[in-house]
């Protein structure tokens, strides 16, 4: 893998290979987070651009206290949230509304679809349903779920990106999982019952 200090040193020297390495390592990941939050590829592209430009501006001062990826994710996350706020300046974000609510989503569907035959999960329709389920999550839960479960960041890294504590990351991940389980249960349980077996 890339040694970060070497990469940063090479970026400071304006090494074009270092730029290509940086872009390859992080552009898709940042885009994944931004498009997951914004559901708009143009805006997500703007976020990725903003994150890299901010890094270039700050390169000389970049101290490496946090990892490069974490730093970029944080800028991309904040830029995405700014854009969400601009879209609907009069309405608070969904998660600001339920920030004080620590009740868990109660499971209501108890059909076991977990060992349904593989093709049920592999269909394009199932994939679209997975996307839809994530899109329905409140932004704060969605960001945690994307970073932890899909991008594979640790709890600590996720907390650093989002500017919250690790306890909050765990609670939000738990809520996100339960909400997604419920959503997917609605979809898969029906298909298991319809005799997919």
């Amino acid at each position: 893998m890339i040694d970060e200090r070497d990469l940063i040193a090479a970026l400071r020297q304006k090494d074009p290979h270092a730029f290509a390495t940086l872009f390859d390592a992080y552009s898709d990941k940042l885009f994944g987070l931004a498009v997951g939050l914004l559901h708009d590829e143009d805006e997500a592209e703007g976020v990725v651009q903003e994150a890299f430009l901010r890094l270039f501006e700050g390169l000389d001062k970049f101290e490496g206290r946090s990892r490069l990826g974490t730093w970029l994710y944080r800028v991309a996350y904040n830029a995405s949230i700014d854009r969400l706020r601009k879209r609907r300046p009069t309405r608070p974000l969904a998660d600001e509304l339920d920030a004080g609510d620590d009740s868990l989503p109660m499971p209501a569907i108890f059909t076991d679809w977990s060992s349904a035959p593989e093709p049920l999960f592999a269909s394009a329709e199932a994939h679209a349903e997975l996307e839809r389920a994530v899109a329905r999550l409140p932004e704060s839960l969605r960001a945690v779920f994307i970073l932890r479960e899909m991008e594979g960041l640790s709890t600590t890294e996720t907390a650093e990106v989002l500017g919250i504590n690790t306890g909050a990351v765990k609670v939000r991940l738990h809520r996100a999982r339960l909400l997604l389980r419920e959503h997917l249960s609605g979809y898969f349980a029906e298909r298991v019952a319809a005799g997919g077996n």
Partner: peptide, 24 residues
């Protein structure tokens, strides 16, 4: 019921983990 919730939550996590990472 709790066993079903456990199994389907694990399957939910598994399905997302094995999704192709999004690309530009």
């Amino acid at each position: 019921n709790c066993k079903v919730v456990l199994d389907t939550t694990q399957q939910t996590i598994f399905l997302y983990k094995q999704q192709e990472p999004r690309k530009i």
